[in-house]
């Protein structure tokens, strides 16, 4: 029974890729410097709050948690595409892809194994910062479900950006181009969308002669798909809460973020498997 289960679910590509990542000499150093960087920033913020406020209250704990959550989000946004964008193209460059494709493993299994290994490494980076979380949690101001929501948000973002990386990696032959395309998506997603949102807000307020914060509900939903904005909803930051109150919304908007990006992730993974499949042979002898 167990044998049958393991044969069906154990993905050799995932195991091999994960082993390789863990074995790399640079991995412990990456984890160490990641924790160090996060620790320095968070402890610096902590000392600033202590210096400003005569008494360390719960709000300071919340603020540090918010800073730390955004730091983690930044880490996910910048590192995930870099890790995932070479997963397939590097195999092509190393001329090992055809050897994988002639095994009975399907394109879906190969994509899933590679993708999960990159997500696994991101999770490892995330888990390496647990000591910082413990320190922040000790200062209070954060509920457990809030911390879990933040984790879920980061996980969904990781899954999505890794799928973006692997999608371009299976679409184009060169890792360099795949990485550029992945970051281009991140830039459009993170910066250009914010700029568009701002322009639309100004334009709408001028046309309708209303204050800038009274923009159409549709555009508010649009901005909730932005990682930083949806993180604000997840953290229940005042401005996000105010927006929800303005429209008498009880529905947590970040759910939209979770659903949309889960769907997009699945779509990108299926597309990646499609482009990897030998049926899509584009390469000439």
């Amino acid at each position: 029974m167990i044998k049958k289960w393991s044969k069906r679910w154990v993905n050799p590509v995932f195991i091999q890729e994960s082993q390789w990542r863990i074995r790399k000499k640079t991995t412990p150093w990456i984890l160490f410097f990641h924790l160090l960087l996060m620790g320095i920033i968070v402890f610096f913020a902590l000392f600033v709050f202590i210096a400003i406020e005569p008494f360390f209250d719960l709000r300071s704990g919340t603020n540090i948690f918010i800073i730390f959550s955004y730091l983690q989000l930044g880490m996910v946004v910048f590192i995930s595409p870099a890790i995932a964008s070479g997963l397939i193209s590097a195999e092509r460059e190393k001329q090992t892809l055809s050897l994988l494709l002639v095994t009975p493993l399907s394109s879906k299994q190969i994509i899933l194994g590679k993708w999960l290994s990159s997500v696994g490494f991101m999770l490892l980076l995330y888990l390496s910062t647990l000591p910082v979380y413990v320190v922040i949690y000790n200062y209070g101001g954060i509920s457990l479900d809030q911390a879990l929501r933040v984790f879920l948000h980061l996980l969904i973002t990781m899954l999505f950006l890794s799928s973006v990386g692997i999608f371009f990696s299976s679409l184009v032959k060169r890792t360099g181009i795949s990485t550029i395309l992945s970051y281009l998506v991140v830039i459009i997603w993170g910066i250009v969308s914010t700029f568009i949102f701002y322009l639309v807000s100004v334009f709408t307020s001028v046309i309708n002669n209303v204050p800038i914060n009274e923009i159409p509900f549709f555009w508010e939903l649009f901005i909730s798909l932005h990682p930083a904005a949806s993180m604000a909803f997840v953290l229940d930051i005042e401005i996000a809460a105010a927006l929800l109150n303005m429209h008498n919304m009880t529905f947590p908007v970040y759910i939209l973020y979770f659903v949309i990006y889960t769907i997009l992730t699945i779509f990108l993974l299926i597309s990646s498997a499609y482009f990897l499949s030998p049926k899509r042979d584009q390469q000439k002898e």
């Binding site: 044969k7 050799p12 590509v13 090992t96 009975p104």
Partner: peptide, 21 residues
């Protein structure tokens, strides 16, 4: 064809054998 340079010979064959279940 290329090889996974991080693997030893036995691990290399072990990996492909795993791909065959």
């Amino acid at each position: 064809f290329g090889v996974y340079d991080q693997l030893t010979s036995i691990e290399y064959l072990d990996f492909y054998a795993a791909c065959y279940g």
